[in-house]
Design a protein around this nucleic acid. Structure first.
Lengths: 243, 243
DNA sequence: ACAATGACTCGCACGGCGTACAAGAGCCCG
DNA sequence: CGGGCTCTTGTACGCCGTGCGAGTCATTGT
């Protein structure tokens, strides 16, 4: 469909497939964009590339989508759809439900680290159906725990700010690694010169690096996330009206 | 210096200013880049634009800086330099010191909302001198409070993850507004259709929007940040060995 | 039966981008 | 005087997003 060889005769030219349905659709475009983003990161998503991946051309996309930003908004709302909010009937269940939500949200960001580079579009995507649902369900979760509406909003924002902050750092590092600038070995090695340099003026940093020297970085990130999550939940739980 | 008119005579042509010192320097380039970023956002920073702003051309910059990413790393470390960590002698002072640090850090991000789009470069910039100092001083702050090295690291990461997460959201919204896509009035109006839409399926969201209807958005953000900050500090403080 | 409309797709062109590369220009040291 | 060092410039390449007009169907109105 994309190759334009010149056919020698009308007869050999393939009859235009009757247009049973449009060859492009918004869903198809969004799906392929998501595939590209997950596979190769934000740098690989260009309208030209996306068009050819769809067996078409860049400009054809503009019928279905206003511009690239809008396309990314759609993809962002799509991945918001992957986060499910657990329902908690009792206050006892609330803490575990909130923790599960936080872990799922972080996992979603780490599955799609390019979201980190789409923050502008995320602002708009917050009006998408999936993020509206997410916000609403989260509000419900915190209300069920015993907060009134406004404090439920604040508490929820607190939790997701923590998740967003830490997952964003992780995702940025991971996607930088994944883009193949350097392997994990080289990454650590590139750290050591500045660590030595730092040793002169910053003894605490040196001690910290030494402590992390031979640890599994993935496990470190998990532990660090889990630690902070407990602290944030502690702080929020302390505000709950005593049962 | 950038205009290349042909002079009619050797005499009218300005004598090449003897090169007392190079006409460009890394410091100068970084400073001008920062000015551009603060004034017009990340979209306005192109090597060509920066070059002409410096009375030169884009390619001249590459003598002083390897590439655009490295330039941004330098600017990012520069703004890290704006954050000062208060020293806390006693445990009693720790909480206020940590809160001050968090507020300063957020203020820095809101002063330079483009940092939000430079996350990849921030990962590298974490090896810059200013961020090393920042990390070290923060570690010291949490150690002084009574944590051992590793928990000080975790607790510090928790606090800055929260700050980063919430300030990032704020900055993304602010810089999108600032880019003039729409005024604050239009922004709120553009919210209402989707709020009405949301009302159908998401009654809690509607109630929340109504509650925020006539409030000052700036103050809301302040309150929200302050609330979460207290919760996070509560959660961390609860882990301190009892005095 | 035929024309008109609307839904899509495509080709072309514009102005911008980062940056590789090579040629200069001014200066210092021999 | 001449070579080499430091720094600046011009040119060029291959990308990018997207506005615009022309083309290609399927459907609808007459």
């Amino acid at each position: 469909m994309s190759e334009q060889q010149s056919y020698p005769s009308v007869w050999t030219r393939p009859r235009r497939t009757r247009r049973e349905q449009p060859s492009l659709s918004r869903e198809q475009i969004v799906a392929e964009a998501l595939r590209l983003l997950d596979a190769e990161g934000i740098g690989a998503l260009s309208m030209r590339r996306l068009g050819s991946q769809l067996g078409s051309v860049a400009t054809a996309i503009y019928w279905h989508v206003a511009n690239k930003d809008e396309l990314i908004e759609l993809v962002v709302d799509e991945v918001f759809g992957e986060v499910k909010v657990p329902v908690a009937g009792s206050r006892a269940e609330w803490r575990e439900a909130a923790a599960t939500l936080a872990r799922d949200w972080r996992a979603m960001i780490l599955r799609h680290p390019w979201t980190v580079h789409a923050l502008d579009e995320m602002v708009s995507a917050f009006h998408g159906p999936n993020s509206l649902r997410l916000s609403d369900e989260m509000l419900a979760l915190f209300e069920a725990a015993g907060f009134d509406l406004l404090e439920a909003d604040h508490a929820g924002k607190t939790l997701i700010s923590y998740v967003l902050g830490i997952a964003t750092s992780e995702a940025a590092a991971l996607s930088k690694l994944a883009r193949g600038d350097q392997s994990e070995r080289e990454w650590i090695q590139s750290l050591w010169p500045s660590a030595d340099e730092a040793a002169r003026d910053h003894p605490r940093l040196r001690a910290l690096y030494a402590a992390y020297r031979d640890a599994d970085p993935g496990k470190n990130r998990e532990d660090s996330f889990a630690y902070g999550l407990e602290r944030v939940l502690d702080g929020i739980e302390a505000r709950l009206p005593r049962s």
